[in-house]
């Protein structure tokens, strides 16, 4: 013999349908926020958003501020060109560098002290004479 098992929590199809009419009415008439309250909540949300925006800004202003302090993007480009040129001269110094500078560069600082800066020009004369 089989017995029909019915869930004791089951309210049956008629009661389900009746209850659904109430739920449907409840969904159609939800408790509504007053326009004043909604406006207050919106203003509060916007205030919080602005505060978040302000909290973020200093990080960006730091980089922008540094670039501005250096004279803006054109100055930054000039600075980069100078740096590259300096690096290149360091790697491959020009042949006609004054001997005093060359001595200093090669680490012979004692010799550099005795060579007058103008001596480089004399060296040029010597070269010309040899040529």
């Amino acid at each position: 013999m089989t017995t029909e098992h019915r869930d004791p929590e089951d309210i049956g199809p008629e009661a389900e349908a009746a209850l659904e009419r109430y739920f449907s009415a409840g969904r159609a008439h939800p408790p509504a926020l007053s326009p004043e309250m909604l406006a207050r909540l919106t203003a509060e949300a916007q205030g919080q958003a602005r505060a978040h925006g302000r909290a973020r800004r200093p990080a960006r202003a730091g980089l922008a501020g540094l670039i501005a302090a250096l004279g803006g993007w054109p100055a930054l480009a000039g600075l980069a060109t100078t740096a590259v040129a300096g690096f290149w001269i360091g790697l491959a110094p020009p042949d006609l560098l004054a001997p005093s500078v060359e001595a200093l560069w090669s680490g012979d600082s004692e010799l550099a002290l005795y060579l007058a800066p103008a001596q480089g020009l004399e060296a040029l004369d010597t070269l010309d004479g040899e040529g």
């Binding site: 919106t42 919080q48 958003a49 978040h52």
Partner: peptide, 14 residues
């Protein structure tokens, strides 16, 4: 909203 967009804050509140 976290980036400071007040219109997004308004839309999300509504």
């Amino acid at each position: 909203v976290s980036a400071g967009d007040t219109r997004a804050a308004q839309a999300l509140t509504l």
